[in-house]
Each structure stands twice: as structure tokens, then as C-alpha cells.
């Protein structure tokens, strides 16, 4: 089978997995369905010949699954109240989304075929990347040499996110009850 059919198979598999994750009443089953969807993304990256992305996606999937299972497995979140849905609003939203989807189908004919034309910037990187940066892995050459500003921004975002997490989580430690407040 060509790559496109495998991709369509994987995408439909992932959509089914997401729907199952949303509809599950049991939280643990929902987490496992989310993990299956993430592994599908990883395999799709492998099929599209992007092993760097596939490795990172696979590892992060394991990391997040471990944290989620660890966080939710002993909690009483398993029972979930049915949410009250405004039926008219929900119907209007669904009809609008379907209408937008069908109205945008003709637009796909305007797009160029999948993977064409090759971007000229990408071609420049492929031709000159190894010579100009001395790095055999072109992805490393792009993210750490040509687009190093972008990586600097990502590092700052990660640093800020970790600081924010620590600030929010550790806030309880600081408000210890003092001696005279204790009964």
C-alpha cells in the first residue's frame, strides 16, 4: 500500500480512539485511549520519514501517560456527572460546523498536491546544511543553527512553564498554620 492509504488508516484509527476517549465513563480507560492516539501520531511521523519527531512524540506520550495514571488512579474521579447541555445551542453549533465543513470542501481543489512543490528554503537547507554547519543531522542543523532564535524562545517557554508549575503547586507549603492559630 502507498503511504497515503496507511496514513488515512492511521488517521481514522486516531479519530476513533479520540471519540472512545471522550465517551468512556471510566477515567483510566480514557487515559489509555489517549495514549493509543498519541502512539498513532508517533507511527504517522515514522511513516512520513520524520524519526526525530517520532522519538520525541513517543517519549512524551510515555511521560504524560505515566503522570496521568499516577495522578488519577487512586482518586475518586471515576464517576462523572452528566453535564447539562443546552440542546438548542449544541444543535446550532453542530449544524454550523457541518455547514463550514461542506462549504470548505471545494477549497481543497485549489491546494497543490500532497508534498509538492518542495519549498525552496528547505531545498537550500538540504543542499548547504551539512557544508555550512558541519552537522550530519539536518534537523539539528535547522533548529540549532539556522533557527536558533526559535529554540531560544522554546527554552524560555519551557523555563517559564516549569517556574509557573512550581509556583502554583508549592503555594500550599508556604501557608503553614502558625502556632497560635492551632487549636
Amino acid at each position: 500500500m502507498p503511504v497515503e492509504s496507511w496514513l488515512i488508516f492511521l488517521l481514522s484509527f486516531m479519530i476513533v480512539g479520540s471519540i472512545i476517549a471522550l465517551e468512556m465513563k471510566d477515567l483510566l480507560s480514557a487515559i489509555i485511549s489517549i495514549g493509543v492516539v498519541g502512539l498513532g501520531v508517533s507511527v504517522a511521523f515514522l511513516l512520513l520519514q520524520a524519526p526525530d519527531l517520532a522519538i520525541v512524540q513517543f517519549l512524551f506520550e510515555i511521560f504524560s501517560i505515566v503522570i496521568m495514571v499516577r495522578a488519577f488512579i487512586k482518586k475518586d474521579y471515576h464517576k462523572e456527572e452528566p453535564s447539562k447541555v443546552n440542546k438548542i445551542l449544541a444543535g446550532v453549533t453542530v449544524i454550523t460546523l457541518i455547514a463550514i465543513f461542506f462549504l470548505s470542501v471545494p477549497l481543497f481543489k485549489l491546494l497543490p498536491p500532497f508534498g509538492e512543490p518542495l519549498m525552496t528554503t528547505a531545498r537550500y537547507y538540504l543542499e548547504n546544511g551539512a557544508r555550512e554547519t558541519g552537522s550530519a543531522n539536518i534537523v539539528s542543523a535547522v533548529i540549532l543553527d539556522y533557527r536558533a532564535y526559535d529554540t531560544l524562545g522554546e527554552t524560555t517557554v519551557l523555563f517559564t512553564a516549569i517556574l509557573g508549575t512550581l509556583t502554583i503547586i508549592r503555594i500550599k507549603k508556604r501557608v503553614k498554620p502558625t502556632e497560635d492559630e492551632k487549636p
Partner: peptide
């Protein structure tokens, strides 16, 4: 080996954290 083979700083860091 981030500049030679797939992977790099981000993937290796996640492996160490794991």
C-alpha cells in the same frame, strides 16, 4: 549524537527524566 543521528537534546533529556 544529536548532530549525527535522529534525536537530540530534547529527546535525550526526556529519556534522562524518564
Amino acid at each position: 549524537h544529536g548532530h549525527l543521528s535522529p534525536g537530540g537534546g530534547f529527546a535525550g533529556g526526556v529519556i534522562i527524566a524518564l
